[in-house]
Nucleic acid binder design. Structure first.
Lengths: 204, 204, 204, 204
DNA sequence: TATGAATGAGATTTCATTCAT
DNA sequence: CATGAATGAAATCTCATTCAT
């Protein structure tokens, strides 16, 4: 009964709650629809299936995140390797990312932490790969220009991992966006300094 | 065929395989016992339940890891904060940790990566907390002694997170122990340098 | 797009496809209406229900078949029993039947092969009964006139079965009408000869 | 509770009843297990799945039928084409077939009439193909030896169809084995005579 | 003329777990 | 020492059907 859009919205709201509480795999469609005052069949009217319901929640935020990353990941290899971009650039990326991540906090939490068993279960790894795929060729070029310095693949991969996880970790521990913006700063600094020290280090 | 020890061992071996392949939650006791040439009932003879079976696999390695951590986490706050311990200490801890982690590689992988749905599903967080709980009071004391410098709680927590994850990440990406020992070095260096830079930085 | 006749026709066309592919029972009204660019509700606007939709497809062809049979099944008992009708009569019936059966090939296939689960699921048996009901009294009369000869009920029934199935089998194996007309001939001959031999046989 | 074999047997008995009444596809495992005083889970303990339950009912009888057919289908092409085997041979085959078919009447009915939706849904066609595959090469050889005579493929196929269906039809209409043995005789005679007439006919 | 929302009943299947033997 | 039988609860999903609009 009532507004059709409302039913769909209620379904999504209840699904968010359930997914966050139990994780995708253990979440019960029965409970979700019951909470929404509907039957399981309704879920299959509005969405393709359980995965479709999840998609309705996370797909759009995910696409935004990917768009932001792709937009920012278009600088010079050397600059990247040496973090010679102005600090403003980092901040802008971080701010954009955090802005998007906290726009639909629950969706993001589900996407990054409670999607096991779904089509999104490897999303964090995919994000890491995105960064990794971007860094690897740059590192290769960098190695040619500065033969004395060392950039091994594992470190590069771990660096990608660390960066993505800095944001994931933040999301998990800080529900407030403004607080998050403050907290990410020193983490970013930390990573920049650690990386510079590593990359400029004399051969060993 | 009817040696009890053998049966138990077979059960554990097959469980390792299944847990690693499907994760704890999706692992099937039926398949495990069938693979072991036994029936599900046998699992309940040798272990309390599904979780008990997992415990039999991971409890001992986990305890060793905890023991190593507790043993090493007994130094002076100031030293810790400034990483003034000799490098040998770090190396010793890392080596001990890796030694233990690769002693029963499968068990560790299950514990750290495939335990979702079990009593151990938050094990990584618990390890992080362990480190965190150790660092926090130290940071407090440190803040008293060097009022100009800043150590905020979140950074500290994230640092714990990063350290634990450095090992988890390693385990996941490098199955060979000797390779692991080599790969962890620059990561550790990276973290030390980043941290020093952060901690000694003038107030901002 | 909103011509009612067109919608109805589209529904029927798509239903034919779906029924033929999956059979009545497994056919999905959702798919049918979606294929037709409509919704399930539309089916219930144009037809009573799933069975009604099927009826709209097969009822008219079925009635024609029945009419042809009823028209031809009005000859003398003796003649029938001995197949003394001119060959032309057989041929005419066969031709009429085949002409009708191939007029709407899909409808006929659905009626005779894919109607399980519907009100028509026993249609072949009903056709056989029709023939049977026609033969049985004739056989009775025949038995009175030629006491030496034998016509048992089961044989008669089986003969009806065989005749109907000759056409059903043909439909299933030969989609082309002209080919069908050629192929049915020897089959008919076969049956005539077999029957004559049986009926004229000395008592045994 | 009670004897384990009994539960399995009860499940099979109730499944037979349900399959026969509603057909495989519409049969309800819930009802079957409830009728047997068990739960659906029990079905999955004793059998792989719904198809497995059906297999437990029909597989063995089917294998026997196939064995009988394969054993008898090993005679000379010419003889076959001309039905020159002694009548005793036909009778023996028919008797063997009927003996087997009526040994587990219900299983056979399910296999031949109520298996739609299962792995056995095309069993009749497969039996026909078996016969057909056996006849076709013989017909080819026969055509070489007696160029004047005609054996077209369609007739051959239809003949296979007819023979198999003679037995299927019988099963459907005569539940008593002894009656069946009597009734099949004239049908067999009919087919022999019809075929001889067809095959020996001058070219037309 | 049709839609779109929703139901409600049912389907098969999977699983950890129990317990008498 | 271990089996084998069985439970019971829950899971996702599919469907024909209804009806207000």
């Amino acid at each position: 009964m009532s507004n059709p859009n409302e039913s769909r919205a209620r379904l999504i709201a209840c699904a968010k709650k359930e997914f966050k509480e139990k994780g995708f795999a253990k979440a019960s469609l029965r409970k979700i629809s019951a909470d929404a005052g509907l039957t399981t069949g309704a879920v299959y009217f509005f969405f393709q299936d359980k995965n479709g319901l999840l998609s309705a929640i996370v797909e759009e935020p995910l696409e935004c995140i990917l768009a932001i990353l792709r937009t920012h990941l278009t600088v010079e290899p050397e600059a990247v390797m040496q973090y010679e971009q102005q600090d403003g650039d980092h901040d802008a990326l971080a701010a954009a990312l955090i802005g998007e991540m906290y726009r639909d906090y629950d969706a993001m939490m589900i996407l990054l932490h409670h999607a096991q068993g779904s089509a999104y279960e490897n999303i964090v790894d995919r994000l890491i790969s995105l960064l990794d795929d971007y860094y690897q060729p740059m590192a290769a070029q960098y190695a040619v220009r500065f033969p004395g310095r060392h950039v091994n693949q594992y470190m590069l991969h771990w660096f990608s991992h660390m960066q993505i996880n800095a944001f994931v970790h933040l999301l998990e521990h800080e529900p407030d966006k403004d607080q998050a913006l403050k907290k990410i700063k020193p983490v970013l600094d930390f990573m920049v300094k650690g990386w510079m020290a590593y990359i400029l280090e004399d051969d060993l």
